[in-house]
């Protein structure tokens, strides 16, 4: 199980822990497979993450970037690494780096499909 950001949640994933709203109200219990509707509800309630059975962030990332060639992905990553003073030693910086990379790749992929 792993904490997955809202954006990376997909229908069919199974909750490893209950999801609550900001005020502590239960939105969905553990063991429930997610549906599109659940994801919408999470977003409305400002939920930013959920604990998911059998998934981890690296696995999700590999799936997300499968559209890009290794060279393209590496180039984006290297350019970003060059600008970050530190992208791995604290979990805060690692997360900022991960999201920045993800968003860059998404922009890149969009551009690619438009051409």
């Amino acid at each position: 199980m792993a904490l997955i950001n809202l954006n990376d949640l997909k229908p069919g994933m199974v909750l490893a822990a209950p999801v609550y709203n900001k005020n502590g109200g239960l939105l969905l219990n553990k063991g429930v497979p997610l549906s599109e509707k659940h994801l919408k509800i999470f977003k409305t309630w400002g939920v930013t993450e959920a604990d998911i059975e059998g998934y981890d962030k690296e696995k999700l990332e590999e799936e997300a970037y499968s559209f890009l060639s290794d060279e393209e992905a590496q180039e984006i990553e290297a350019r970003l690494q060059n600008r970050f003073f530190d992208y791995s030693s604290s979990e805060i910086m690692a997360e900022i780096f991960r999201i920045a990379k993800k968003q860059k790749m998404e922009v890149y992929m969009k551009k690619g499909t438009e051409v």
Binding site: L3, N5, N7, E49, I92, I99
Partner: peptide, 10 residues
């Protein structure tokens, strides 16, 4: 929380 970074950045 760490997951709020993405919510802000996007």
């Amino acid at each position: 929380r760490l997951s709020q970074i993405e919510t802000i950045m996007e």
